[in-house]
């Protein structure tokens, strides 16, 4: 609970890509790049296992030293994984700095103004509205993952919220029918089918991703109703912008705290992204 709120959703949150304090770790910057190659070699075997892994079942090849201090059990050895392949580190790092600046110079100030202007009930309605539009995507992905109950729930939620919830402005399905949202996205579906993340890939503005999750994003784009509305680029960018700013308005401070807590924010964020996605893929048995 202590540091709970700031990780709310590292994968989805826009522009999560902090910048490494240049003065904090001066020597690391250069040497870090040197190790990248060997790092990714070392990680080759883990390249395609990151996502499929469901439990703490991965073995650490390195043997522990003996000694009474050593109650690092298999459980904690498994926590060593996943080591993430990062062959595009120079690109990723650049994008991460870019996104960090984007957050602090653009997204955050805009969101602060928005938050000041728009009252909370309005922002919650806006959140519900966009969330409802994402329901078809969740429905299809739950179905693709054979989570029929979750898919059914999403179907009912979409139908109920679109009508009784006044076009999705209210989450009536949650309030009245007590049906919770069942998140599912296409990257998760691919992971569920056994496709691994591949490697770390940071996109400008969109933030941390991987080849698999990038394909996932494209898939989700086609499952998003607004993608089919024939409007100019400016308008659709505006709509995406509103969705993002509105979402961010509930999360100001999360990213800052994540960055503040990290010793190497780039590594911290990369690790958080993969851990979070691994959980989302592995979470399907519920």
């Amino acid at each position: 609970m202590l540091f709970a709120l700031f990780l709310l959703n590292p994968s989805r949150a826009f522009a999560i890509a902090p910048s490494m304090e240049p003065h904090a770790l001066p020597a690391q910057e250069e040497e870090g790049t040197l190790t990248t190659a060997s790092d990714s070699l070392r990680n080759e075997e883990s390249l395609f296992v990151i996502a499929e892994q469901r439990g703490p079942d991965r073995e650490e090849p390195v043997k522990e030293r003996s000694g009474e201090e050593n109650d690092l059990t298999e459980e904690s050895a498994a926590e060593e994984a996943p080591r993430i392949a990062d062959p595009l580190r120079p690109w990723n790092k650049t994008m991460y700095h870019f996104n960090d600046k984007f957050y602090f110079w653009v997204l955050k100030p805009v969101t602060q103004v928005y938050k000041y202007v728009a009252l909370e009930p309005l922002r919650i309605m806006c959140n519900n509205f966009f969330d409802n539009l994402r329901a078809p995507g969740r429905f299809v992905n739950n179905l693709l993952q054979w989570k029929t109950k979750a898919a059914g729930n999403e179907f009912v939620r979409f139908a109920f919220n679109s009508t009784a919830g006044l076009g999705g402005l209210a989450d009536a399905a949650k309030e009245l029918l007590h049906i919770q949202k069942s998140p599912a996205d296409f990257g998760q579906t691919l992971g569920r089918y056994g496709i691994g993340q591949g490697f770390y890939l940071v996109w400008p503005i969109l933030g941390p991703s991987s080849p698999r999750d990038t394909v996932g994003m494209v898939g989700d784009y086609f499952l998003y109703p607004l993608s089919y509305i024939d409007i100019s680029f400016v308008y659709s960018a505006g709509i995406y912008g509103l969705e993002t700013v509105n979402k961010t308005s509930f999360r100001i401070g999360d990213y800052e705290a994540l960055k503040e807590a990290a010793i190497d924010p780039y590594v911290s964020l990369r690790n958080a992204y993969f851990q979070n996605r691994k959980k989302e893929v592995g979470n399907n048995n519920k």
Partner: peptide, 28 residues
């Protein structure tokens, strides 16, 4: 350990410490 949305605190710090210790001494 505290695990938030699948992100384990110790695992996250371990990734960071590991990178530092790959090139530097414990003293550093």
């Amino acid at each position: 350990d505290v695990v938030i949305e699948g992100v384990s605190l110790i695992s996250n710090y371990r990734a960071q410490f590991r990178e530092i210790l790959a090139n530097q001494t414990p003293e550093a």
